[in-house]
Nucleic acid binder design. Structure first.
Lengths: 119, 119
DNA sequence: TTGACATATTCCTATATGGGAATATATTGA
DNA sequence: TCAATATATTCCCATATAGGAATATGTCAA
């Protein structure tokens, strides 16, 4: 079958390096017309439009029309799910490595009715 | 051409919902044999093996052989690049929205030699 | 050695997707 | 109305990849 990762999923959206480049441009919180982005990232205009479309469907950017321009702006809140997800693992690299390891091993020692690990 | 997202890139690795499920199982820091994971996530064994392979190539898990088992363990440090990247946007949703907006608008007002925005 | 078990790999197919080129659409100004 | 400009969309093609099924590989135990 096909990949389960839905294109409108924010994790899928940010998996594209080019899209992270576009996000980087928008990351100052200011608004940008498509052509401003095109100039910044050195990609073809249709590519930028497509990536912006993907980011919009994922809720990472917003767009308003203004005259003959489409003004894009970062919607950082759309990235929060990624932040919340990865934050869970933060403790693993913040000076508590040993403590975590100790706990994990203690749990391992306590384990018994259901043995998930084959030693 | 083809997608630029390299499969060994951690952003690509975590884009797959199924792989995040596997990571969720490993997230307690304990070690798991493949079959333990298969039971937990209700996926076919070959699929789990493939996903574990992808996660391993991305540096998100480690594996050691032990008897007839392959023991997998989360390597949380492999997720740090994602954390570092998304952390940049944290300020946008932590009670400083107005402050950020103010700064952005101030910058906009200061702008002049190079006009990236069409008003 | 043989069989059972654990895991990885290969083959196949359907689908998603990115880029390039061309084109369509919309807006503005003369 | 017409031309210029800004942006989106469509078409085509190459490639990546997920899942399923089958199979290969490796290890242990009798």
């Amino acid at each position: 079958m096909t990949r389960r990762a839905h294109p409108a999923d924010v994790f899928t959206a940010i998996a594209e390096p080019r899209r992270r480049e576009v996000i980087a441009v928008l990351s100052d919180g200011r608004e940008y017309a498509v052509n401003d982005i095109v100039v910044s990232v050195k990609m073809a205009q249709p590519s930028v439009s497509k990536h912006l479309g993907a980011l919009r469907r994922a809720g990472v950017v917003t767009m308003v029309r203004r005259g003959q321009h489409r003004i894009y702006r970062l919607n950082a809140a759309g990235l929060k799910p990624v932040h919340d997800w990865v934050k869970i693992f933060e403790r693993y690299w913040t000076h508590q490595i040993d403590e975590i390891k100790r706990r994990a091993e203690q749990k391992t020692a306590e384990r018994s009715p259901l043995e998930p690990i084959i030693p």
